[in-house]
């Protein structure tokens, strides 16, 4: 799991391989220099999070679930951000949270994209009944708000991280299906698809070699936005005590565990909440910039 978050930033600024490496790299660097301040800030945030997630055990001063002091100790040199309701070091858990919370959200988004993307591509490429049936199923599933639906399914299947990843992955794949199908349908009617069909290419070739490359920019942007949405949903569930369970360090449940401190004029509960907010804001800034760059999508979303 530790290596997955790395793809977050390569998805946005990937310098693809082989011959043209240098020229492409310089193009990317030039674009990065010209990027607005908000996008630079977003990239910095993402890179920092990925770094912290990858090297958590080396950065953190204590072990993830290690009880190192008394309950709710104040901020000190020994415990930079104090301790939580069980006497675990807050800073350590924030650092491990980068790995757990972000990693789980990333995995879920990946699942949603695999499922929704494949179904969306197939619906657009095959059309006819397949398209009708898939689209109607998605319409109905989308009529129920994700958080509410997820809670119902968690009650039925029981609360565990695996169940949550599967449930949110499937529920969110409906949104991915929608957008993949919508952009693919525009590509499917093009002449080069027709000629590929006439050449006798199979479904696999047409979807992967002809359609997919043409819908990558909107899908990449959608990946960023979906990640934010999934990340916020999972954090909300964990905050409500229905998501990632202790002793795994997770930002949503950390807010819940330390929430009482707010009434004593203490900032501690805001720190994990801020860690969540900062990442989603960062990703949003980068996506916003990417949308401006890659497509004519200027003001209408």
């Amino acid at each position: 799991m530790s290596e997955q978050p790395k793809t977050i930033d390569t998805a946005d600024s990937s310098p693809p391989p082989l011959r043209q490496v240098e020229s492409k790299l310089t193009v990317v660097l030039r674009e990065l220099r010209k990027a607005p301040l908000s996008a630079k800030f977003g990239l910095l945030v993402i890179v920092t999070y990925v770094f912290v997630a990858l090297f958590a055990p080396w950065i953190a001063p204590y072990g993830e679930a290690e009880i190192v002091g008394n309950q709710f100790e104040e901020w000190s040199d020994e415990f930079l951000l104090g301790t939580d309701n069980l006497g675990r070091d807050m800073l350590t858990r924030i650092i491990f949270g980068a790995r757990n919370t972000v990693g789980i959200a990333f995995l879920t988004t990946l699942l949603a994209f695999l499922l929704g993307g494949i179904c969306g591509l197939l619906a657009a490429a095959i059309g006819g009944w397949t398209d009708q049936i898939l689209s109607r199923i998605v319409d109905v599933l989308m009529a129920i708000p994700v958080l509410i639906f997820a809670m119902l399914l968690l009650t039925i299947f029981g609360q565990s991280v695996v169940n949550m990843v599967l449930i949110i992955g499937v529920l969110d794949s409906t949104r991915v299906f929608r957008i993949t199908r919508a952009v693919s349908v525009n590509v499917v009617v093009m002449d080069f698809i027709e000629s590929a069909r006439l050449r006798g290419e199979g479904l696999g070739w047409i979807t992967i070699r002809e359609i997919l490359p043409n819908i990558m920019p909107p899908l990449a942007a959608e990946f960023g936005l979906r990640f934010c949405f999934v990340f916020l949903t999972i954090s909300a569930l964990s905050f409500l005590g229905l998501g990632i369970q202790p002793p795994t360090a997770d930002w949503g449940s950390m807010v819940r565990d330390t929430a009482d401190l707010i009434t004593f004029d203490d900032y501690t509960p805001l720190i994990p909440a801020m860690a969540i907010a900062l990442l989603t804001i960062g990703v949003n800034f980068v996506v916003d910039w990417f949308l401006h760059k890659s497509s004519g999508l200027k003001d209408e979303h």
Binding site: S38, C228, L232, S235, A236, F239, G252, V255, A259, I262, T263, F264, D265, Y267, P269, L270, A273, M274, I276, A277, T280, I281, V283, N284, F285, D288
Partner: peptide
């Protein structure tokens, strides 16, 4: 634009606890 983009991407409980801390506790 920047402010709204930020507040769209913040979890509700973050906004809630900030308001609670400042407007109510402080």
């Amino acid at each position: 634009n920047v402010v709204t983009l930020s507040s769209i991407s913040t979890p509700e409980f973050f906004v809630a606890y900030i308001l609670m801390l400042f407007v109510s506790v402080k």
